[in-house]
Amino acid sequence: MRRLFDSIVTLLFVFVSLGIMIWRKVRDWLTGRRKRALSDTLPLDAETAARFENAFYQIETAWPSNDLSNVADLMTPHFQHQQQRILNRYQRHHKHNQLESIAIVSTELLLPEKPNRQDILVTAQMRDYFTDERQTATVNDQRREAAYIERFSEIWTFRLIDGQYRVAHINQSL
């Protein structure tokens, strides 16, 4: 009985140690990726900044309607379809993702620039919360009041398609 207990404790120790090592490696890799992404940047030129701001505000403003068809020309077809599937799932669950007080704080172009692609690091802030059409206005107002305006960073990837840069991906894992 004692050997069985010792074996179980040893195995448990090995699994916990491996889990901690893996967690640290992943954390270090993500931290390093974030540092690399933030260090290799340039300021946006006026044309790119205007194009980005237009796309950012239009897409973020369209999101709460659960319908991206009005901004489909700003996105690649694959990305638009992917995002619309998320919104359709919200609709099936009677949810609406509300975004308020949207403001861009800073934008930078990530290096290296690849042909027909631009990666833009944006730091912005907004109030982001969900309402449920099955709930009362009071409950939805409480959800709004519980949500704070928060700052976040994302990388928006644009691809050149038919002479127009379109959003192909948004990396929110920063």
Results as ranks from 00 to 15, higher is better:
3 R>F: 10
3 R>L: 14
4 L>Q: 05
6 D>M: 14
10 T>Q: 11
11 L>Q: 05
13 F>Y: 01
18 L>C: 15
19 G>Q: 04
19 G>R: 01
20 I>Q: 02
27 R>S: 12
29 W>G: 06
32 G>Y: 02
34 R>V: 15
36 R>K: 01
36 R>I: 00
37 A>K: 12
37 A>G: 04
38 L>P: 02
39 S>P: 05
39 S>R: 13
40 D>Q: 12
52 F>I: 08
55 A>I: 09
56 F>Y: 14
59 I>H: 10
61 T>C: 07
63 W>A: 00
64 P>V: 03
65 S>I: 03
65 S>H: 04
67 D>V: 03
68 L>G: 07
70 N>Y: 04
73 D>S: 00
75 M>P: 01
76 T>N: 02
83 Q>I: 06
84 Q>V: 07
89 R>Y: 03
92 R>Q: 12
93 H>S: 06
94 H>R: 01
95 K>L: 15
98 Q>W: 05
100 E>D: 09
101 S>R: 12
105 V>Y: 05
107 T>C: 09
107 T>A: 12
118 Q>T: 13
118 Q>K: 15
120 I>Y: 01
123 T>D: 02
129 Y>A: 04
130 F>T: 01
131 T>K: 00
131 T>N: 04
132 D>A: 05
133 E>Q: 06
133 E>H: 05
135 Q>D: 04
138 T>Q: 15
139 V>H: 07
142 Q>I: 10
143 R>W: 15
143 R>I: 06
144 R>T: 07
147 A>D: 13
149 I>A: 09
157 T>C: 02
160 L>E: 13
162 D>S: 12
163 G>M: 00
164 Q>H: 01
165 Y>T: 03
172 Q>L: 08
172 Q>F: 05
174 L>S: 07
174 L>G: 02
